[in-house]
Design a protein around this nucleic acid. Structure first.
Lengths: 207, 207
DNA sequence: AGAAAACGCGAGTGATCACTCGTGTTTGCC
DNA sequence: GGCAAACACGAGTGATCACTCGCGTTTTCT
């Protein structure tokens, strides 16, 4: 039961290669999907030989795992910053702004996140972690809804949270498809309008 | 320029095999996705040898094409029945019922449709046909919105139609994920609530 | 400087997959 | 019944892909 069976000494060059390989993997995963992407294609995108790739990752799945874990960590940070008690106390329209904007921004900067998390073709490990994150996000949304409409039954709250999240995911796809600039901003505004119109009739607590 | 280069005489048994193979393909595509599905797996699911499969389809892509075309034809029928002038003249809540219900029903009966049309891993031919269908559906939605809110600018209408469709797709995923029965019905009702609350403030024409 | 270890390479290897082919069986037609 | 065509089979084939290995280069440590 040794704690560190492989205390591999890694040089700065190695860390750079890993980042470079993960960036290349993100690009090709984004373009062709996980299954259709070959490890040689990742190496080529990174301008590196296949052998070099396998110096840093034991197999193809590990690349997606590492990429997924880094993205999930970032996502959890964005999630934590978005769903703070202070933000939750805001009136509904402002609350939507401070919760939706960071989530949108994260996905705009990391389009591979959706690509990896969405497909059912991803390795099991990521799917599990994604499910956990998904459950966490849903719980946060449930809490928000409970805060604005405490008299709803848990079943109703759960259903509304599911629907709210589904709307967000659908709108997110539109936002990512829109060209950056005014059109994207308009799409984001429209998404917030949808959420506001859906949720505001539920509010029974004055702010 | 002969019109029928291969007037293959097909027996009833052959037609049955084709249907059987397409059904099997639908099952495995649905479970594992197009890319991860092997032709041998399709043949096995259909209790048939690989050679038999290739008697009816020239290659793997052709299976997805044929399946996709049959589904698209059915979908177009459902679409045509849903967006009739008579239905369009209904008040908004009833209009939502008669348009949303057939679309939901089709996707519940053919879950492989979403699986094939959604992934970017599908062969190009289906993606093209799907884009065409998508554009048609969007146009129909735009017409509906123009009917209820004629004073909106075309850009606004387009954006609202895009968002409406995105909401529907997101909600559709939830509906398919819900177990059949009361829970699914409740999810469908919730989806209609979303659409109603989003669209009703736009209505400026009395019915 | 010199040794050890990390880095880097790319042809090679075994497995898997889409697809074929030679052969045997069933069906439709006279 | 008998013939031709459609149907059915499954081991085999070439290509592709994930992954390896032997060897040369660069970095780090003393």
């Amino acid at each position: 039961m040794s704690e560190e069976p492989k205390p591999r000494r890694r040089q700065a060059r190695g860390e750079r290669r890993i980042a470079q390989l993960l960036q290349a993997a993100a690009n090709v995963f984004c373009a062709y999907g996980y299954t259709a992407t070959s490890t040689n294609a990742i190496a080529r995108e990174a301008s590196v030989s296949p052998g070099t790739l396998y110096q840093y990752f034991p197999n193809k799945e590990a690349i997606a795992i590492e990429l997924g874990e880094r993205l999930l960590t970032e996502m959890r940070e964005a999630h934590g910053q978005a769903f703070t008690p202070a933000n939750l106390a805001l009136p509904l329209p402002e609350m939507l702004d401070v919760v939706v904007d960071p989530m949108i921004a994260f996905n705009c900067e990391n389009p591979v996140f959706l690509a990896l998390m969405h497909g059912s073709e991803v390795p099991g490990r990521i799917a599990e972690e994604h499910d956990a994150l998904h459950a966490n996000l849903l719980n946060s949304v449930r809490d928000v809804i409970a805060h604005f409409a405490p008299e709803l039954s848990p079943e109703e709250r759960a259903r509304i949270a599911d629907m709210t999240f589904a709307i967000f995911k659908g709108g997110l796809g539109l936002v990512l498809a829109a060209p950056e600039g005014a059109e994207r901003e308009a799409t984001i505004a429209e998404l917030k309008t949808v959420l506001l119109r859906y949720l505001s009739p539920l509010v029974t607590v004055p702010h």
